[in-house]
C-alpha cells in the first residue's frame, strides 16, 4: 500500500459545468504532493472528493486504500482537512477549538486535551491559546485551522490553498509547519496557485487546468521541460554589446538601450563564463551577468499557455499567469465553459 491517493477516471460536474474531466492519479506516500492550477482548475473539487465532502459523479478515488464512496467513514478516520476558509469557531478559544475538534476526530477526552496542547506547540500558538479565535490575525487563524486538521494525527492532511491571503511571514511559518509534518511521516496533499509554494514544499506537482491534468512530476522534472536557461550580460557601452554578441556561441538578442545581450542556453553558466572571459581578454567591462533558471512559473505558462491559439507571449517576469484560467477552448471536444 504505497499509494496514499489513487483515482481513476474521476469525474465531477456542477450544474452541467464540468469541474473534473477524468482524473487519474497514483500519489505515493512519503512526499508532499501539490495540486497546482489557476482558479477554476478543479483543485478544490478534487480535495473535496478526497475528503468525502463531495461525491464524485463517476470514476473511483481511494485514500489510504479506502474508497471515498463505499468506505467514507474509514477515509474520514485517516484524514485531516483544512479547507480554503479557516473553518474554526470564532467564539471559542484556540485551545477549545482544538479540544472540540479533537473529540470530533475520535480522540478520547484526555487524548484530545493532550493533542490540543501538542498542536498548539507545533504551530506556535501557545501565547494566544486562551484568546477567542475571532480575535486572531489572519496568519494565526490559518495556523489554528491547520492545527485543527492535524490534531488527531491523521495519516493524510489535505490543505486547500493554505497560504492564500497570508503575509509573507505567516506564509513562511505555515510552510515550516508543513515541512515539519512531513518529517514526522504525515502525508500532505496541498493545493496552491503559487508556483513558488509548490516548488518550496512539494516533491511532486500535479498541474491542473480546466479540470484535467496537464503535467505531473517533480518540480525539477517539470522545469526541465522548459528549454534551458536565459543568460543576460550587460556591458559598459552600446558598441561593446555588439562585440559581446560575437562571443556568444549561438543566436542572441542585443538590447542597445540596456547595453546587453541575451540568449538562451542549455548550459548557461559555462557559456556565460566563456563570454565573460572573452570580453575580459578584450578589456571590456561586464557590468552585470544574470542566469535565469526556469521557474515553475515558466513551466506553468508553457503548459497552460500552450492551449492558447496565439501561443502566448514572453513568460518572463509574469507573477500571475493572466488569463491562464480561461484558455480558448478551440479544438477541445468537451467545449465547456
Amino acid at each position: 500500500m504505497s499509494a496514499i491517493i489513487e483515482t481513476e477516471r474521476l469525474v465531477k460536474s456542477y450544474r452541467g459545468r464540468p469541474a473534473l474531466r477524468g482524473i487519474d492519479l497514483a500519489l505515493e506516500s512519503g512526499i508532499v504532493h501539490a495540486l497546482l492550477g489557476p482558479n477554476g482548475a478543479g483543485k478544490t473539487t478534487l480535495v473535496s472528493i478526497l475528503s468525502t465532502v463531495v461525491r464524485p459523479d463517476g470514476g473511483t478515488a481511494r485514500v489510504a486504500g479506502h474508497d471515498v464512496r463505499r468506505e467514507a467513514a474509514a477515509v474520514r478516520g485517516v484524514i485531516g482537512l483544512a479547507g480554503q476558509h479557516a473553518a474554526v469557531e470564532p467564539k471559542l478559544t484556540g485551545r477549545e477549538n482544538l479540544r472540540v475538534f479533537g473529540r470530533l476526530s475520535g480522540l478520547g477526552a484526555r487524548a484530545a486535551r493532550h493533542a490540543a496542547e501538542s498542536a498548539l506547540g507545533r504551530l506556535g500558538l501557545e501565547a494566544v491559546a486562551d484568546r477567542v479565535a475571532g480575535g486572531y490575525s489572519g496568519g494565526q487563524r490559518r495556523r489554528l485551522d491547520l492545527a485543527v486538521s492535524l490534531v488527531a494525527r491523521p495519516a493524510l492532511v489535505l490543505l486547500d490553498e493554505p497560504t492564500t491571503g497570508l503575509d509573507p511571514l505567516s506564509r513562511r511559518q505555515l510552510w515550516d509547519a508543513v515541512a515539519e509534518l512531513t518529517r514526522e511521516g504525515t502525508d500532505v496533499l496541498l493545493t496552491t496557485q503559487y508556483l513558488e509554494e509548490a516548488d518550496a514544499l512539494a516533491g511532486n506537482v500535479v498541474v491542473l487546468n480546466e479540470g484535467g491534468i496537464v503535467a505531473h512530476g517533480s518540480p525539477a522534472r517539470l522545469k526541465s521541460r522548459v528549454a534551458g536557461e536565459t543568460v543576460t550580460i550587460a556591458v559598459d557601452r552600446p558598441e561593446h554589446a555588439a562585440v559581446a554578441a560575437q562571443s556568444v556561441p549561438g543566436d542572441c538578442r542585443i538590447d542597445a538601450e540596456r547595453m546587453s545581450v541575451t540568449w538562451s542556453s542549455r548550459s548557461g553558466a559555462r557559456e556565460a563564463l566563456g563570454v565573460f572571459a572573452d570580453l575580459g581578454a578584450r578589456g571590456i567591462e561586464v557590468r552585470e551577468l544574470t542566469i535565469h533558471r526556469p521557474t515553475l512559473d515558466d513551466v506553468f505558462l508553457d503548459l497552460v499557455g500552450a492551449e492558447k491559439p496565439e501561443g502566448g507571449g514572453e513568460p518572463e517576469g509574469a507573477e500571475q499567469p493572466e488569463g491562464a484560467g480561461k484558455p480558448a477552448g478551440a479544438g477541445k471536444p468537451e467545449g465547456g465553459r
Binding site: I4, S29, V78, E89, P90, K91, L92, R103, L104, G185
Partner: peptide, 25 residues
Amino acid sequence: MTVSAPRRTAWPVALLAVTRRHALA
C-alpha cells in the same frame, strides 16, 4: 507512515462536542 485503524467517533461523543461548541458560542 504508521498505519493505524481509522478513527471513529461515537454518536453521543460527537453530539456532546457539537452541542458544547454551539452552546459556548
